[in-house]
């Protein structure tokens, strides 16, 4: 069964057959069918009408499907975006709780009308402006619809809003990203807030950059990332999956902690490292995540086999 593992989600343009027809072969965990910034105004309506058929094109390799709609056209976009097979609606430049409530009401009505389990489509607020960052707690608690993970606080739009350069050699988004991350963690929403890697080249298609990015995210404990170019997919999927060594270590930590707990102790050592409740909990997260990744990989593999035969 497909799950919510989304080590990498990549944007695809439904209006461009070259991208949408091939996306499923690229190995992404999720594809974002875009009606927003990658679609020219004159193409928006044609793009809307292509969303439904694009779902079954892009998910042939077992990927989850997200749709990114337009902030000014929520009412016009949603009837073309809410379908069975869509896992998440992405609401760009979200700034207020009211925007969340408005989109939620429309999605709820469409779910009912189209026989989609109520509340099953995630509404994902994209935080791309200062106002959105400041209002993050209200935004995340605005509707009775599960938000699984949350990131944001940086990116092109935030740079424009702040009047700063997008590509810098220091972390110009440290504060909004941290603020959004803290709010999501406080609400038990998995945080995906990025880790700063210097990139002054402005290029987003270099796979060595992707390897660095994956390693940094993995060390920081983040399970998700986005991509603008297919060259980023494989390094991110691989780099955010626990390695065999990490899984073996986690098992050893759990075994050791069970041993010390069974005799009423709480701190022990394993190969010179401390084993305690914190290391035990961290090990459990590693194992749970490894299991979810394996489940997703298995689902993708089977889907790919069926699609290729």
């Amino acid at each position: 069964m497909n799950n919510r593992v989304s080590r990498v989600s990549m944007f695809v343009t439904p209006t461009n057959p070259r991208f949408i027809d091939k996306a499923w072969t690229r190995g992404g965990d999720a594809y974002i069918l875009d009606i927003e910034d990658s679609i020219a105004p004159a193409e928006k309506q044609r793009c809307r009408t292509l969303i439904r058929e694009s779902i079954d094109k892009a998910n042939k390799g077992g990927a989850s499907i997200y749709v990114r709609i337009n902030k000014p056209f929520v009412d016009a976009d949603l009837p073309y975006a809410v379908w069975r097979g869509v896992d998440r609606i992405m609401l760009p430049k979200t700034e207020t709780a009211e925007e969340m409530q408005h989109a939620h009401q429309i999605i709820t009505a469409l779910e009912k009308e189209r026989g989609i389990p109520p509340g099953s489509i995630e509404l994902y607020p994209m935080i791309e402006t200062t106002l959105g960052a400041v209002n993050i707690h209200q935004i995340l608690t605005a509707v009775d619809r599960k938000i699984w993970s949350m990131g944001g606080g940086g990116g092109y739009d935030m740079a424009v809003n702040l009047g700063i350069e997008m590509f810098a050699d220091f972390d110009q988004y440290a504060y909004p990203i941290a603020y959004i991350t803290l709010a999501s963690m406080a609400l038990d929403i998995e945080s995906t807030g990025g880790v700063f890697i210097p990139n002054t080249s402005g290029r987003v298609d270099q796979s060595d950059q992707a390897i660095l990015q994956a390693a940094a995210l993995h060390r920081a404990g983040i399970h998700h990332s986005g991509a603008l170019h297919p060259a980023f997919i494989e390094p991110l999927v691989k780099g955010l999956t626990p390695t065999t060594e990490e899984i073996e270590w986690a098992k050893a930590v759990i075994q050791k902690f069970d041993e010390i707990s069974s005799v009423g102790e709480s701190i022990g050592t394993l190969e010179g490292k401390i084993v305690d409740i914190y290391e035990y909990q961290k090990a459990k997260v590693t194992l749970d995540w490894a299991l979810e990744c394996a489940e997703k990989d298995c689902f993708k593999e089977n889907a790919l086999k069926r699609a290729s035969s």
């Binding site: 941290a178 803290l182 880790v195 060390r219 920081a220 404990g221 914190y278």
Partner: peptide, 26 residues
């Protein structure tokens, strides 16, 4: 306190724990 452990904040390339500086400042 032990936020790196309880909140599972791993290291970032800036040689700090993720979020650590922000939480210290806050």
């Amino acid at each position: 306190g032990r936020i790196d452990l309880t909140m599972q904040l791993g290291p970032v390339p800036q040689h700090e724990f993720r979020l650590f500086r922000y939480l210290m400042t806050r």
